[in-house]
Write a protein that binds this DNA or RNA. Structure first.
Length: 521
DNA sequence: AATGTCTGCCCC
DNA sequence: ATTCTGC
DNA sequence: GCAGAATGGGCAGACATT
């Protein structure tokens, strides 16, 4: 849509904008360039005000229904006609959410500290306020109006999401114990959606990892919380997972995602039943309990969660031995879960809202060299890079080999794992094999920017196989579509020893998928 | 009415 | 989600 | 080591198009 806006505003064709975007990799910069080239009208334009820009964007956001796309475009084109090329750049970046200033929430907190306090300590107090209320605008407003001392008045409260604590990752169990020990709580890591549950009597609100309100999606969870949580006012955290009530097993994440809907919620609640595995408590009896050590929070949690088939604590145990940690990890993986999270339980193991510290460490099988399956895939296409990857490829399209039909159906795109240096090498190396159109042997629903004849083979690591609506590998031989790789990344290894027909085959992928499904439920 | 395409301060 | 990189 | 910016699969919803 942004392409259309720029094309219209600069009175040029969409293909011109697309070509330019391909080279520059930034729709804002493209707008700046093209508008400068067609800049007669700006001489007579009105002066742009922030209020006008804001009101226009607000109106665009609120436009819905039939014809809304056309209407949104018209409003934005109107706005750009009053903008200088540079203003257009930032308007485009703002509306596509790609500001690319090197400034995020933490950068803003730094700025607030300097602007309103001017001392180092201020930063921590401001950040703490943000972590417990998750609202940067509110923090800034209170700070500006009432000063640094007012930050202490911003406190955790039921109904207001707390920024979630995250885990580091590590592959070596001995190192994990070293970092978080001497004793750690080793918990199963479930493949579901993280939920922060806020309970005030019968009122229950659910928040997602990014502080979105997701209460409406899980009426069954709300009910479970009302009945199984023996505390009036509290904030808990857990993982919401899709389950098979017959077997008691966990169903794939994709199934759970069918619950992310606004309609048919009651029907889907029956089709995709869920369970919640609680693992933390942040607020209890009207008090913030985040400062309590993990060990004590776990005890408190045990005392208020009344378990049944749908609600329980995460499976976990305390150990100080790397060997035992690995045993629990193996159990978790063998029963179809992602891995484990090892948590510090010592006196300093309070809940650190908004941070990713060594107090929590996750271990997944894909972190263990050799344990996860890497595959050798054929590069069949590429997608132009954006931002700092402008002029290079941002991702490549990769296929397996289907020996039966002698074709190369796609399994994934790969956009991570490349160093800057590799990206340069990648382009040089691949452009050698560039062809004008998709090779008839390449089976792909995905439209690449550049197609290659199947030649280069690379090693790719992934977490697991998923049934895919878009990728074609194995399509027709499985229920539900083809196969794709979840979380694909380049290992850095080119398989120069392999030609395309020696790449991982569709049969290999199906076998991997069946094996993984077998260990699951 | 069916199908295609794009978006989400999306989930992972 | 994973990964790389400038500070 | 942190914070930020690249990028992945895949779901439902909202429109546009046929």
């Amino acid at each position: 849509m942004a392409v259309q806006v720029v094309a219209t505003a600069a009175s040029t064709s969409e293909s011109t904008v697309k070509d330019s975007l391909r080279e520059i990799g930034d729709i804002g910069a493209v707008a700046e360039l093209l508008l400068a080239e067609s800049a007669q009208a700006t001489l007579f334009a009105e002066e742009l005000t922030i209020t006008h820009v804001y009101e226009t964007l607000d109106a665009v956001a609120k436009t819905t229904g039939k014809g809304s796309a056309r209407d949104k475009i018209a409003r934005l084109v109107g706005l750009l006609s009053d903008a200088s090329p540079m203003e257009a750049k930032y308007i485009l970046r703002t509306l596509t959410g790609q500001l690319r200033l090197g400034i995020g929430d933490m950068g803003i907190i730094d700025s607030l500290a300097l602007a309103f306090a001017g001392e180092r300590e201020a930063r921590e107090r401001i950040e703490r306020a943000f972590n417990v209320c998750s609202d940067l605008a509110q923090v800034a407003e209170v700070l500006a109006k009432e000063g640094l001392d007012s930050m202490k008045n911003i406190q955790a409260a039921v109904g207001r999401p707390i920024r979630m604590m995250a885990a580091k990752k590590l592959s070596d169990p001995a190192e994990i114990i070293e970092k978080a020990g001497p004793e750690v709580l080793v918990e199963y890591k479930y493949d579901g959606e993280r939920v922060q549950v806020h309970k005030d009597g019968e009122d229950v609100i659910l928040f997602s990892r990014r502080q979105e309100q997701i209460t409406e999606q899980y009426p069954d969870v709300v009910d479970l919380v009302r009945h199984q949580i023996q505390a009036d006012i509290c904030i808990l955290e857990g993982e919401c997972i899709a389950i098979d009530p017959k077997t008691g097993g966990t169903r794939p994440f994709q199934e759970l995602m069918k619950r992310r809907r606004k309609t048919d919620i009651d029907r889907m609640s029956e089709e995709v039943p869920v369970a919640v595995r609680f693992f933390d408590i942040l607020f209890h009896k009207g008090k913030d309990v985040t400062a309590l050590p993990m060990a004590e929070r776990r005890k408190l949690l045990e005392s208020i969660v009344q378990s049944n088939e749908r609600v329980s604590l995460t499976i976990g145990e305390v150990t100080d031995e790397p060997e035992r940690l690995m045993e629990v990890f193996t159990q978790a993986v063998e029963s179809g879960h992602e891995g484990v999270i090892a948590k510090a339980i010592h006196d300093g193991s309070g809940y650190q809202a908004g941070s990713r510290s060594w107090l929590w460490i996750k271990l997944k099988s894909s972190y263990q060299e050799g344990m996860a399956d890497s595959v050798d895939l054929v590069v069949v296409g590429a997608i132009h890079g954006r931002g700092k990857r402008a002029g290079l490829y941002g991702a490549i399209l990769a296929s397996a080999y289907d020996a039966d039909s002698d074709t190369f159906p796609t399994v994934c795109k790969i956009g991570t794992g490349f160093t800057d240096e590799m990206l340069v090498e990648l382009k040089e190396r691949l452009d050698h094999h560039s062809i004008g159109a998709r090779s008839p042997k390449v089976i792909s629903d995905i439209e690449a920017d550049v197609w290659f004849s199947p030649a280069e083979v690379i090693e790719v690591l992934g977490d697991e196989m998923t049934v895919s609506p878009t990728h074609s590998a194995g399509r027709g031989r499985l229920e539900g579509g083809g196969l794709a790789i979840r979380f694909p990344r380049f290992t850095g290894r080119w398989r120069e020893d392999k030609d395309p027909k020696q790449a991982t085959t569709v049969a290999d992928l199906i076998e991997l998928f069946e094996r993984q499904r077998g260990s699951g439920q």
